[in-house]
């Protein structure tokens, strides 16, 4: 069994998403973290200079926000689907609705439809209030 599959299995068994994050270099580069609230798994992007795109505002890079949403969606699937396979992203669509500031960014994922091969996930992220999205995304992943 590969290192990532093993990490996924252990992460699900002990409910420790950080075990998967430790295995993914890009996740460590962004600095993504997780937070459990009951059954809900929140993702957090702590403020970090490494994710800044515009230093004068300062604002997060749109690519860092998009990457955070995509990563959150795939980690959500790895934690909730009983699959040995690392989800492969097919497409992602991101709407940037408010500037991403240098403050903690929170994200929550919803599985809209889970098929045998394809999963549709929507993701919302915000700074202060879930009703004031910074960006929203929807993505398809292959999980077969």
């Amino acid at each position: 069994m590969s290192a990532i599959s093993k990490a996924c299995e252990q992460a699900r068994a002990e409910w420790k998403p950080e075990l998967i994050i430790e295995q993914i270099p890009y996740a460590k580069l962004l600095g993504i973290e997780t937070h459990n609230m009951g059954d809900e798994l929140f993702f957090v992007l702590p403020p970090s200079k490494g994710n800044v795109g515009n230093p004068t505002l300062p604002a997060l890079h749109g690519g860092a926000i998009g990457g955070f949403l995509e990563l959150a969606a795939s980690l959500h699937l790895m934690m909730t689907l009983p699959t040995q396979v690392t989800p492969r992203v097919v497409d992602i669509s991101v709407d940037y609705v408010r500037p991403g500031r240098l403050e903690p960014l929170y994200a929550l994922c919803t599985v809209v439809r889970q098929g045998r091969k394809l999963v549709n996930v929507s993701v919302n992220c915000w700074h202060k209030s879930r009703d004031e999205s910074v960006a929203t995304a929807r993505a398809h992943f292959l999980v077969d």
């Binding site: 993914i24 890009y26 996740a27 962004l30 890079h61 749109g62 690519g63 860092a64 998009g66 990457g67 955070f68 995509e70 990563l71 992203v89 992602i92 991101v94």
Partner: peptide, 10 residues
């Protein structure tokens, strides 16, 4: 990771 490609294309 796709996120890096998102940043590149954005």
């Amino acid at each position: 990771h796709g996120g890096a490609i998102t940043a590149l294309l954005d």
